[in-house]
């Protein structure tokens, strides 16, 4: 199962990088979402997958050796929240930019460069 998820991480990164290199800002944002999901999955995988042994179950004593590691799950939850906030902010920024200039083309963004 881990190997499948590892491949999925790879595919998501590939798709993310590909989309980020496109000219459209919207595609860039979608690429960002892909990359952020790939990263979240990577962090989630970092402790390995354990099936059938959730972390906190009231009233039952489970051997810590076989229990799923709770930390990466907590990390991923935090990372998802942060990712959500960032994606929304990026979308809002893109929206305001589009309202102001009417362009979605990254090649038009050359004014502040030099």
């Amino acid at each position: 199962m881990e190997i499948v998820l590892a491949i999925v991480v790879g595919i998501l990164y590939t798709a993310g990088v590909y989309l980020m290199l496109r000219r459209s800002i919207l595609k860039f944002i979608i690429g960002l979402i892909f990359m952020s999901n790939a990263t979240n999955l990577l962090v989630f995988l970092s402790a390995g997958l354990v099936s059938g042994s959730p972390v906190f179950v009231d009233g039952e004593k489970i051997n810590a050796e076989v229990m799923a590691d709770p930390l990466p799950q907590a990390l991923v939850l935090t990372a998802i929240v942060i990712g959500l906030g960032i994606v929304v902010f990026t979308l809002a920024l893109k929206y305001k930019f589009f309202e102001l200039t009417g362009t979605d083309d990254l090649d038009q963004l050359k004014k502040t460069d030099n």
Binding site: M20, I25, F28, L32, M35, S36, T39, N40, L42, V43, F44, L45, S46, A47, L71, P72, L75, A79, I86, F89, T90, L93, K94, F97, L109, K111, T112
Partner: peptide, 25 residues
């Protein structure tokens, strides 16, 4: 326009940071 550039590169940086955290853990 500056904000979009600032945002884009820094977000990629943040994602790499997070991936580094994952590998470290």
């Amino acid at each position: 326009e500056g904000g979009i550039k600032y945002l884009a590169l820094n977000l990629v940086g943040s994602l790499l940071f997070l991936a580094g955290v994952g590998l470290l853990y």
